[in-house]
Write a protein that binds this DNA or RNA. Structure first.
Length: 498
RNA sequence: GGCCCCGUCGUCUAGCGGCCUAGGACACCGCCCUCUCAAGGCGGCGACGGCGGUUCAAAUCCGCUCGGGGCUACCA
């Protein structure tokens, strides 16, 4: 425990996404760290929703986010869906609070009305930038006379409210970056609420963090430069310096191309990975590694371990690129490490979705899944790959079809001999069990016909499983049963060209 | 442009002044195993951005430089 010089007050951490889309891998990485930090310190984890921008927020994303987080194994002590002593936790339900504070700032002169249009601001910004200086708002409306205000009003202009950022500088100690200083020459008077009166992020986030007694703000580095703005709001609110939340800015998660995460450079929605059959434990483990490691060579760990070991002092400062290949490799590892029964249970929904078994499966299907699962556990790296490998076992016999490409390549006249020998050998096999099946087929095709194993078994595999890439042949035949196996061999023989 | 942050193999990382001729993982390339595909085993390729300085000693500390990222919205 070398990081946070344990503050005197109990730790309160929040995760506060904006529900304007599915949670992406960057969001989830932040949520993970927030959660782990709260748990490690024995603190409280708060889940808040920043839904002040009505033009971007969509309600369905709120449920989606909650759903995704629970699926990953995260939980919170206070939040939109569970309530808590500092609610509501949906910013859209706190509009009155923001309005009250805004009024107070206005009355006390820490904020002022700004009548500039967006076009005017943009134009002056452009000019300032061309001149080589800071390009934020220039303070045009800071000191308007009553006559000027009256003139703007007469024009019908609707003002926004801006914070009056005093001269000077803001310095704070970031738990990850160390001491960071911003000169206020580069912290322009920022907008607190829009012309329609609705609050902006910078206002709402600061007020809520104070009101919700957040002690540690652990969030993405993209918010680092907005920190002085938040601190300005704390000051305007009259919060004593000693009670300011402590900041910790996490390194960014970048796309595979080193660019900012976006749909263009790969899939970023965590829900997509869930649907593809990535295990929640894989996602947590992999994402945790994007910026943190427990130290040494260990890179496989559980959420529970993270909850006892996570330490902000071990968080990297540099950004990390998201690499799907490593994620998938790790998923394969986690899949292989699953208890067989657990693995069977995890692939079942995927088999059901593919229409191979009922939802829930019948007793017969369930036992077949249990028997077949071990055949593919080391062969897939995503649960979504299970149906493809097991379809031959579950498909109704009349629907069974050999993959055309594999048939054309393997089920050729030269294969007749092997297929017939296999059919004959299996017809009278006394004990239907994979070991005996292998012995019999091997004797007939390899020893009997002098074929190489590879040459001998491939046509049989294609005839029986419908494809060249399949689970181990003899175990597959065992599970398929004598009747269906012989039927498929006969069908393949009948379909042979020439 | 201005401000802020960052800089170890292609990627994720270990390293927190000597244990480093820099370790692990993914990817890639060989070989082994093998009924396909995997898994597994063995081996290989491969990095401290550059330049100065501090020190007996620097990947580790400092400066500069170059490079990358973020912010610069009536988005968050």
């Amino acid at each position: 425990m070398t990081d946070d010089q344990r503050p005197p007050r109990a730790v309160r951490v929040r995760f506060a996404p904006s529900p304007s889309g599915d949670l992406h891998v960057g969001n989830v990485r932040t949520a993970l760290y927030d959660w782990a930090y709260a748990r490690r310190t024995g603190g409280t984890f708060v889940f808040r929703l920043e839904d002040t921008d009505r033009s971007r927020v969509q309600l369905e994303y709120i449920d989606s986010a909650i759903d995704t987080l629970y699926w990953l194994g995260l939980d919170w002590d206070e939040g939109a869906d569970v309530g808590g002593p500092y609610g509501p936790y949906l910013q859209s339900e706190r509009m009155g609070i923001y309005a009250e504070w805004t009024e107070r700032f206005l009355a006390e002169g820490t904020a002022y009305y700004c009548y500039c249009t967006q076009e005017e601001v943009a134009q002056r910004r452009k000019a300032a930038r061309a001149a080589g200086g800071p390009s934020g708002y220039d303070g045009h409306c800071r000191t308007l006379t009553e006559a000027q205000v009256a003139a703007y009003r007469a024009e019908g202009r609707q003002p926004v409210v801006r914070m009056r950022v005093p001269e000077g500088q803001t310095t704070f100690t970031d738990l990850i970056r160390g001491e960071v200083t911003f000169d206020h020459a580069h912290v322009p008077d920022f907008v607190l609420s829009r012309a329609d009166g609705s609050p902006l992020y910078t206002l709402a986030v600061a007020i809520d963090d104070v009101l919700m007694k957040i002690t540690h703000i652990v969030r993405g580095e993209d918010l680092l430069s907005s920190t002085p703005r938040q601190i300005t709001v704390y000051r305007a609110m009259g919060v004593p310096e000693a009670e300011f939340p402590v900041f910790a800015h996490l390194p960014m998660v970048l796309g595979p191309d080193g660019q900012r995460l976006s749909k263009r450079n790969g899939v970023v929605s965590v829900n997509w990975y869930r649907d593809e059959g990535f295990l929640p434990e894989t996602i947590c483990n992999y994402l945790a590694l994007l910026g943190w490691s427990p130290g040494g060579d260990r890179e496989s760990f559980t959420l529970a371990e993270m909850a006892t070991e996570f330490d902000l002092s071990r968080v990297n400062k540099n950004s990390a690129q998201f690499d799907v290949r490593k994620l998938e490799a790790m998923n394969g590892d986690k899949i292989r490490a699953l208890e067989p029964a657990d693995f069977a249970a995890r692939i079942t929904p995927f088999l059901a979705r593919a229409g191979l078994v009922a939802e829930p499966p019948t007793a017969g299907q369930a036992s077949l899944i249990a028997a077949a699962a071990p055949l593919i556990q080391s062969r897939i790296s995503r649960l979504s790959q299970a149906p493809g490998l097991l379809a031959f076992l579950f498909v109704p016999e009349q629907d069974f079809a050999v993959n055309p490409e594999d048939a054309a390549r393997v089920l050729v006249p030269e294969a007749r001999e092997a297929l017939q020998a296999a059919e004959t050998a299996l017809k009278d096999l006394a004990t239907w069990e994979s070991g005996a099946i292998e012995q019999t087929v091997r004797d007939a095709l390899v020893d009997g016909l002098g074929l190489k194993p590879r040459v001998a078994f491939t046509p049989v595999r294609v005839a029986v499983t419908g494809q060249r890439v399949a689970p181990p042949l003899f175990e597959s035949i065992d599970l398929l049963g004598r009747e269906r196996t012989l039927a498929r061999l006969a069908r393949a023989l009948g379909a042979l060209p020439g």
